[in-house]
């Protein structure tokens, strides 16, 4: 049981990290999701495997219920973050025209003469009309 559990966490992490390193937004999103599954399983395992359900009055050794509450919180946060990532990836694809996830530095491309192609030169931080 422990071995199977540990191995599935390991496979999930490895797949997640591999997909993260693909550096395109869709694989990265799937990778992050797999990583968060692995983390949730790990947290769940921290409550110990193989015990009975933690209900007062039950007999025998019980699992710790706190990690289950932690996993619930982590799932909720992970869900919100995945939704946000998806929205941002779509917006990025629409606005940038590509889905690279590692393209953070517009100043490194091109020559020493700096040309930022995508923003008008006069943009302040409150451009546009009120």
């Amino acid at each position: 049981m422990e071995l199977l559990f540990a191995m599935s966490i390991g496979v999930l992490v490895a797949t997640g990290v591999y997909l993260l390193l693909r550096a395109h937004t869709f694989p990265v999103m799937v990778g992050l999701t797999l990583l968060s599954y692995a983390v949730n399983l790990f947290l769940f395992g921290m409550g110990r495997l193989g015990g009975a359900a933690p209900i007062i009055g039950g007999a025998g050794p019980m699992t710790d219920p706190v990690p289950q509450a932690l996993v619930l919180t982590a799932i909720v946060i992970g869900f919100a973050m995945t939704a946000f990532t998806a929205a941002l990836a779509l917006r990025g694809f629409g606005q940038l025209g590509h889905d690279r996830a590692d393209d953070s530095d517009p100043w490194q491309r091109g020559s020493r003469r700096y040309v930022r192609q995508d923003t008008p030169a006069t943009e302040g931080d409150d451009g546009g009309q009120p």
């Binding site: 990583l35 968060s36 946000f84 990025g92 923003t119």
Partner: peptide, 27 residues
Amino acid sequence: TSHRIRAAIPYLVLNLTGSALFLIGTG
């Protein structure tokens, strides 16, 4: 603006990965 979106994607991915590690350490 486009350059903010471009900057936000790696920021988001890195911090989400960091959060996963945070949970593993805490767990």
